[in-house]
Design a protein around this nucleic acid. Structure first.
Length: 413
RNA sequence: GCGUCGGUGGUAGAGUGGUCAAUUACAACAGACUGUAAAUCUGUCGGCUUCGGCCUACGAAGGUUCAAAUCCUUCCCGGCGCA
């Protein structure tokens, strides 16, 4: 039984985009697709039934978080991620690579997954990889990464092998190699050093994965492993990384089943980085743009041949009161919506918009009622999932570029 | 009626002679959020401003003082106790 098959159905003329179908042991994913993020084995504020109803095809959980709580072996005893969280569709787990960044170099700083622009003066020209005096919860060592638990302060050492072992215990259909997500403000020298490390970790991830797959009993479902490309904003490094990860294989000939495009991006670099990478990656395996989910970025990614996206933005923005509409984002807590008895968006087919008004949702937020986050998350996820679904349809019927133009003209940031 | 305690910015509630346009919390107003340290965080929150300040404010009116939200007097309002 293969862990994953990917079939391309239709290609986009004049760009790298395509539609396709990924088949996993827990069902199919029509691509391009938006993956909902359920870090701790739950998409915050939503039940799996709500997720299915709003059109989610696949859920991504996190290795680091579930390892700390409740523990990956515990999840395995509970029957694996699918059973534990009651989501029977396809699943993924991230490797913890992003936490190397968010709890490490980015810890306590105003550096996010996407930064507005790279000011050369911000660039870190020199740094040590460990004790540079900067408080952080993740420190990169030669062999892996030391994490100081954000929950109880305890120390944990995650190696590529450990990450893969955890991900096998969790049992998601698609898992990721352990990588180091770097910031665009790092120097070229550091970027190169980190990339070598990411490649070395990728190889170790692949080898450990192969070994664990071979040890599986017949009753255990196979898992697909995605390799992660890094390289920052440097064209040579990005292409080198794509080539290295694409070519990587074990002695027995196992290679990655798909690819993740990683890294923290300067906004203006994202499109070029994706284009460089997807121009090198083999066409016949799925590509996942890690952690990206703003509408304009989704258009860019789909156009440039990305098949999967995951992002916390729809749920996080939703819980914080920011809602997507065709005209752009609105903050439902603004005074003007307090007595607005229209739906969040006219014509939206989501549960929230078919049953509730802006005034009601605004009331729930002001009253700090839990249902606020639920209704907002339903709407935002529906909006983004539906947007990517529509891109897929528009590629299929040959009107992708017209759709992109119309949508982005209306959608004010 | 007598006694007593108290009346502070939208609310609660600090402050009890200068360091007070007044701590703090909440509310309000706005902003941020892209492989979730996130149902979180940040800023503003008397008026005007050339951003140096200026003006008006701590129940009301007087007064003491170089200086009063803070001390004194009277009044108004509220709680409690006694008649």
């Amino acid at each position: 039984m293969k862990p994953l098959t990917f079939t391309i159905e239709k290609k986009l003329d004049g760009a790298l985009g395509r539609t396709g179908i990924i088949e996993t042991p827990h069902g199919v994913i029509h691509t391009p697709a938006f993956v909902t993020v359920g870090t701790k084995a739950t998409v915050k504020a939503l039940t799996p039934e709500m997720l299915a109803d709003l059109g989610a095809q696949v859920v991504l959980a996190n290795t680091y978080h579930l390892y700390l709580q409740p523990g990956d072996e515990f999840v395995a005893q509970a029957g694996g991620l699918h059973t534990f969280m009651n989501w029977q569709g396809p699943t993924m787990t991230d490797s913890g690579g992003f936490q190397v960044f968010s709890l490490g170099a980015a810890y306590g700083k105003e550096i996010g997954k996407v930064v507005k622009a790279v000011d050369p003066s911000m660039q870190i020209t020199e740094r040590s990889t460990a004790d540079d005096g900067v408080p952080r919860l993740a420190t990169i060592g030669n062999d892996g990464v030391s994490f100081r638990s954000h929950i109880d302060g305890s120390l944990h050492y995650i190696t590529p092998e450990k990450s893969i072992e955890i991900q096998h215990n969790l049992g998601a259909d698609m898992i990721f190699a352990f990588d180091e997500c770097t910031s665009p403000v790092e120097s070229d020298a550091y970027q190169e050093e980190a990339l070598d490390r990411t490649h070395a970790w990728a190889k170790r991830s692949l080898e450990r994965h192969e070994q664990l797959e071979k040890e599986k009993k017949d009753s255990q479902k196979p898992q697909a492993l995605f390799g992660v490309i890094q390289g920052g904003r440097n064209e040579l490094l990005r292409k080198k990384s794509a080539q290295a990860i694409a070519d990587m294989q074990t002695q027995e000939g196992r290679s990655f089943d798909g690819f993740g495009i990683g890294g923290s991006f300067a906004k203006e670099d994202m499109a070029t980085a994706v284009k460089w990478v997807n121009g090198v990656l083999p066409e016949d395996k799925p590509r996942h743009l890690l952690g990206i989910g703003e509408p304009e970025d989704l258009f860019m990614g789909v156009e440039q041949g990305v098949d999967l996206f995951d992002c916390v933005a729809p749920t996080r923005l939703g819980r914080n009161g920011t809602l997507h509409t065709a005209q752009g984002k609105i903050n439902i807590l603004n005074t003007q919506y307090q007595k607005d008895f229209t739906p969040i968006e006219h014509g939206c087919g989501c549960y929230t918009c078919t049953h509730y008004t802006r005034a009601y949702v605004a009331h729930l937020f002001r009253a700090k009622e839990m249902l606020a986050g639920t209704l907002a998350s339903i709407h935002n996820l529906y909006f983004i999932i539906h947007l990517v679904d529509t891109m897929r349809e528009k590629i299929a019927d040959g009107t992708f570029f017209e759709f992109k133009k119309t949508f982005l003209e209306n959608y004010k940031k």
